[in-house]
Design a protein around this nucleic acid. Structure first.
Lengths: 117, 117
DNA sequence: CCGTATCCGGGAAGATACTG
DNA sequence: CAGTATCTTCCCGGATACGG
């Protein structure tokens, strides 16, 4: 057995690496199923190219599924898989820490303002 | 209040982004305090430059501290801060998921082998 | 022993135009 | 509506050499 956990962390990072994957997951984890255009509305700064490639990566790793409805206008629905749901604890800890970190940073800001006044 | 948690995830990612930060953290979280050379031994693939820059980033964000001992040969000790300890739940979930993911992948491998035989 | 300085390539990511 | 194709830009991260 390994004493440190480098391999495990790296294995996870391989799936989650990329500027937008965790952002995408934070949205689809809440909505269960989302369309391409819904992602674009939810994440205004992402380009179609990046959204497309990140979704493909996540699909490749079995985190999300992609279903095409053969109708006009075209409709594609992305859903989080059961395996993808297993990432929720990671998302939760990230959100929790981020929330605290945002508060922490704004409190640091105030300190700087106070000490300068 | 926000319904999705994009800001929180992004805030966390800003601190943890970079090829090596979570790897570094997975080591120092266990050892509490580590020297520069110990990191290099533990993470053979990292270059001095990357190690140095990632450590500086982490120090800047208050995750680790840096203490220089004015002696020859030079000795520098990095320690995880209390704030850095608050990242442990993230590390734990990453390790836990990675462990499961590694098993999952090796089981998929076997399936492929079986179905081809 | 613990880094920094400098140079550089390659991949990540953006902009834009086009397609079924 | 849901992407792909193409071109370009940027900067992360590697290699190497040098400094305190």
């Amino acid at each position: 057995m390994s004493l440190n956990c480098q391999d495990e962390v790296e294995a996870t990072l391989e799936v989650l690496v990329g500027k937008w994957k965790l952002i995408i997951l934070s949205h689809i984890a809440l909505n269960k199923t989302m369309r391409f255009g819904e992602f674009q509305k939810s994440i205004p700064d992402i380009t179609k190219k990046m959204l497309s490639s990140q979704l493909r990566d996540l699909e490749y790793h079995g985190i999300i599924s992609r279903k095409v409805y053969n109708q006009m206008p075209l409709k594609v629905e992305y859903a989080i898989t059961e395996y993808g749901e297993s990432l929720k604890p990671i998302l939760d800890t990230l959100v929790h820490w981020g929330k605290n970190h945002i508060e922490y940073m704004s409190s640091q800001e105030k300190k700087v303002v106070d000490s300068s006044g």
